[in-house]
Design a binder for these strands. Structure first.
Length: 568
RNA sequence: CGGGGCGUGGCGCAGUUUGGCUAGCGCGCCUGCCUUGGGAGCAGGAGGCCGGAGGUUCAAAUCCUCUCGCCCCGACCA
């Protein structure tokens, strides 16, 4: 491709809308342009990268027994009503009507459609297992699209669905995908690691997320340097409090203290000169509309997912001020567990508190010297808090580290969550009808591109791993007007193409600085600079983008040198 | 949805408080000259009616009302 022809409008300045490096570079390097919030058009360079990623995904999916299909984006409401998710999915689903006022949605995911497809054609265990995948646009009306392509409302996802006859078969499918994912991300040049995760709205029990570690990542993960355990903080269990976490057991009698305007943990601590772990937070929630009090230690963060699981409710909301006042008889900030008439559920660390300060259920008052065991009757005690750095690893007990990450893929075992309501069944050897055991496995393809940039860029621009780079090399004659340089450049361009090296020839009549800057910004892994100095010796400069190392290479040898590096 | 901010040539911004604009600057773009090892220089030029709609006024980018869009922080997710 000639640079003068390439539709790659680069930007000198950083667009005001972009915060993340990946977002900025995708715009500046001319990979994409925004259409509307969370929706992007991919330009030639961006689309080439995407296709490289998709091809890697395809190859690994095919190796792992997958067969590619293309499923509808426009999906009928009936299917979603069958699975129950038409009601459950909420505002995040783009819903449309046809001219006859029939309901449809733009598929946010494809479990329903694929299950409906398979149920109509699969009759016998002899047809199993089946692993079907597609690379397709998905639509989710995100509450807040952000970070460019990382959280879009339209995005490209690879999703594979496995159908097995039993759990054991599903385990094999799951493992095959898990291994394929590791290989896919490795080939994309990503440092991605699987972490244990929560299954969220998709459902199912076993699931791993593949996280690309990066400071700008949206998710927080804990990992154990000792044993390699890793999990999303949403999921990571907290160990029961060790002995030293249990507060002093010689508790004095209850004492009500006047604490004017001290409604937050910080204010109380300052006021009473105590530490946050000596306080208990009492948070009122509405679980499917019913109030519950949740008790967490002052220095701990409540994990709402864990709470929701314990409460087994479908809607969990923090109570509004009016409800809090009704339930506690006090202003927000002074709720306490003593004397409440609603159920109290306590985090295990909070339940161990023996001399704590709690709200007195009276505005501007707290109660101190509370022993949970002595003074309260709890409805339930459970692991409700969010795991944090330094906590004991649930696998080996060593201290955990934390890191931020961007989720690029997730694998789920679904069981019969969809096959049962949608009646996707088969006959086993005994002629008995059974539900298909399913798994689903997604990779955010567009997001993966951004993740690669997050891990492979510097102040000057992108530095693509060869495997996903839009082109392998850019040839930059210092002056394209110079006959000798131009001729050398054009010959080299031909040679490289004949060797299967994907090359761009920068034939613009620009000054060298402009061409170098663009080359660095776009991120070609290699640059060949043709200038008068080296040309005199029949050599050109070969520059590696990642390391910026320069080497002089014989013109006649560049082709084979590059060919070898690209394929190694 | 709650909180904060912003919409002025393709991009980045100034002007808005204290109406007076024939709307300005840098970059980019076009033409010519010149230049060619890290986003050159000179000269000439094109391009906006100030997100949109109403209103106040002799006069509105600037004031008022409504509306649309975008960005950031928080609750959701690949």
């Amino acid at each position: 491709m000639k640079m003068s022809q390439l539709y790659a409008p680069t930007l000198r300045e950083v667009p005001a809308e972009a915060e993340l490096r990946s977002h900025q570079f995708m715009l500046r390097a001319g990979l994409m342009r925004k259409s509307t919030a969370g929706v992007y058009a991919y330009l030639p360079l961006g689309y080439r990268v995407m296709q490289k990623v998709m091809n890697i995904v395809r190859e690994e999916m095919n190796k792992a027994g997958g067969q590619e299909v293309l499923l509808p984006i426009l999906q009928p409401a009936e299917l979603w009503q069958e699975s129950g998710r038409w009601a459950d999915y909420g505002d995040e689903m783009f819903r449309v009507k046809d001219r006859n006022k029939r309901d449809f949605c733009l598929g946010p995911t494809h479990e329903e459609i694929i299950t409906a497809l398979v149920r109509s054609d699969v009759r016998s265990y002899k047809q199993l297992p089946i692993r079907l995948y597609q690379i397709q646009n998905k639509y989710r009306d995100e509450i807040r699209p952000r970070f460019g392509v990382i959280r879009g409302r339209e995005f490209i996802m690879k999703d594979l669905y496995s159908f097995d006859r039993d759990e054991a078969g599903c385990d094999l499918s799951y493992q095959a995908m898990y291994d394929a994912y590791k290989e896919i991300f490795r080939r994309c040049g990503l440092d991605a690691r699987p972490v244990e995760a929560d299954s969220g709205a998709i459902g199912g029990d076993t699931t791993h997320e593949f996280m690309v570690l990066s400071d700008s990542g949206e998710a927080l993960v804990v990992h154990c340097p000792a044993c390699g355990y890793a999990a999303n903080v949403e999921k990571a269990p907290c160990a029961e409090p060790a002995a030293q976490d249990v507060l002093d057991t010689q508790t004095a009698g209850l004492e009500k203290v006047h604490t004017p305007d001290a409604g937050t943990i910080d204010e109380i601590c300052t006021f009473l000169d105590i530490e946050p772990q000596q306080c208990l937070k009492t948070v009122i929630y509405l679980a499917d509309g019913k109030p519950v009090a949740v008790l967490v230690r002052g220095d701990h963060t409540l994990n709402e997912l864990k709470l929701q699981k314990e409460l087994d409710c479908s809607e969990l909301l923090i109570a509004d001020a009016r409800t809090v006042e009704e339930v506690t008889g006090a202003a927000v900030g002074f709720a306490g567990p003593i004397g409440l008439s609603i159920p109290i559920i306590a985090d295990q660390a909070a339940a161990a508190a023996a001399d704590a300060v709690v709200g007195a259920n009276q505005t501007d008052y707290h109660t101190r010297h509370v022993s949970v065991q002595r003074d309260l009757s709890l409805w339930k005690t459970a692991d409700l808090r969010q795991c944090r750095e330094g906590d004991a690893c649930p696998a080996c007990g060593q201290a955990l580290d934390t890191a931020r990450g961007t989720e690029v893929g997730q694998v789920f075992k679904l069981g019969t969550k969809y096959s049962e309501p949608l009646k996707a069944t088969f006959l086993d050897e005994n002629g008995k009808e059974r539900s298909l055991v399913m798994g689903c496995y997604g990779i955010g393809v567009s997001r993966t591109v951004a993740a690669v940039i997050e891990q492979h860029s510097d102040a000057d621009g992108i530095s693509w791993p060869i495997s996903v780079s839009p082109y392998h090399v850019v040839i930059v004659p210092v002056s394209f007007k110079d006959d000798q340089q131009r001729q050398t450049a054009e010959e080299l361009y031909q040679t490289l193409q004949n060797l299967g090296v994907e090359a761009v020839l920068d034939d613009r009549l620009e000054r060298p600085g402009v061409k170098f800057k663009d080359a660095d910004l776009i991120g070609f892994p290699y640059r060949i600079t043709i200038g008068p100095k080296s040309l005199a010796e029949n050599k050109v400069e070969l520059i590696e983008r990642g390391t910026k190392t320069v080497e002089l290479v014989d013109i006649a040898a560049v082709g084979s040198v590059l060919q070898e590096r690209i394929h190694s």
